[in-house]
Design a protein around this nucleic acid. Structure first.
Lengths: 236, 236
DNA sequence: AAGTGGTCTAGACCACGCG
DNA sequence: GCGTGGTCTAGACCACTTT
């Protein structure tokens, strides 16, 4: 028998409505007092729920105005290519170069797999990111088939895999671990990124942790950083 | 006339005692009820103060036991060389190769300087990080002379510049922005890191924001990632 | 002036860790 | 069993934004 925490119920209720766009980005949530009436509780408890959503990056609070729904992911402190998701100075495009398909795990993945994952096949897909019509990042992705079905790229919400996870599956990215290396471009990579063989490129291995138990997303990225460096900021 | 928030006073009081090691790392803080008596307030307020310190990474809470003082910096999600600050699998050493000295700003710094900073000279020093007696990272650092006096490297607390800032000056790192590039090693860098000229190395430009107004720390790092990749994790 | 979120009080009971 | 932190109630007053 598990104790249900009231603030957690409220938190999950609001989170679900944000994920399914019932509270769309940039709109304001109902006021704290309205939630108090709705859930038959006090402001302390409602505020605790909102504080959690604040920490998770779903909302921002504005004194005297209300709690505003954020587009999540923007404020995650993820590594991002300079200019990506920034102002429209750059034309950014993503092309799926290998459709999601079921394959065996690739030993190139830079993290040890769990027993759960090893016992399953995996879904693989590949994308290339363009800035100003030049290929800048080659990105391989994998996840365990027994944790999430294959999703066809035409079904990606606004072309984004992460947005699809959030809005269609209510799965959120909880964190990630990365390893960064500076390496010479192999012939294959060089061709796909349109650079010289042996040119220095940034290799990134990522493991994303998600809110769904046992579901990790693995990434293997190759970035041409000569014109567009990788950016990262983090604040307390 | 500014309103003084009680929880903020308590927060700063405890923070100062942690920074000056009156509450040393790994020890437990006085209980919430003891703080209530000490400051003549209620648990709600004391808990708010502790929650802030939790978010800033100064303490960890353990239900049923107490609030434990953490060694700050360890849990900041900063980029770190694999093995650095981890278990003692690796022998890690830092050598100051250029003593802190007052110089003009170097145009190599990857961020625009504020007017305040430009109007001042700056303090520069250089360090090399070794793992297993092999040089792995070459690190240049700058900060504005009008924001902080030069600190001689013999005075570094436990050889660490950041620990010195925290314990001697009560200055904390609040966040950072980075730009990462994969570049070929120049002759100078190659020699200092003991690698071939033109070998791919990871170049990182950093701006650290601190709790002291107008004080930023700038970094320009060159990392040989062939044996020891750079690691980074972040969690919500 | 009305409504919002921010701070604070003075309690209560619960869940966890340890002796 | 006792002390710790975790959750929750039912209020109050303040600071900020908008009408």
């Amino acid at each position: 028998m598990k104790k249900i925490k009231k603030y957690h119920q409220i938190q999950e209720y609001i989170k679900k409505r944000i994920q399914t766009q019932k509270y769309p980005p940039d709109s304001y949530l109902p006021s704290e007092n309205e939630f108090c009436v709705q859930f038959g509780t006090t402001r302390t408890t409602v505020r605790k729920a909102l504080d959690e959503l604040l920490k998770e990056g779903f909302i921002a609070k504005e004194q005297g105005k209300g709690s505003k729904v954020l587009e999540r992911g923007k404020y995650l402190g993820l590594l991002s290519v300079k200019g990506f998701s920034g102002s429209t100075d750059y034309k950014v495009k993503t092309r799926v170069t290998v459709e999601p398909k079921v394959v065996e795990w690739d030993p190139i993945i830079g993290f040890p797999l769990s027993e759960d994952e090893k016992s399953s096949k995996c879904v693989y897909f590949q994308r290339v990111r363009y800035i100003d019509d030049k290929p800048v990042v080659l990105e391989n992705n994998w996840y365990a088939l027994n944790a999430l079905e294959p999703i066809r790229s035409e079904e990606f919400v606004e072309g984004s895999f992460f947005k699809t996870l959030s809005q269609e599956y209510l799965i959120e990215i909880m964190g990630a671990e990365q390893e960064l290396r500076s390496v010479p471009a192999s012939g294959d990579i060089a061709k796909k990124l349109g650079i010289a063989v042996g040119a220095p490129i940034l290799h990134i291995s990522i493991r994303f942790r998600t809110s769904r138990p046992h579901l990790n997303l693995y990434g293997d990225l190759y970035c041409n950083t000569t014109e567009y460096p990788i950016r990262n900021s983090y604040f307390l």
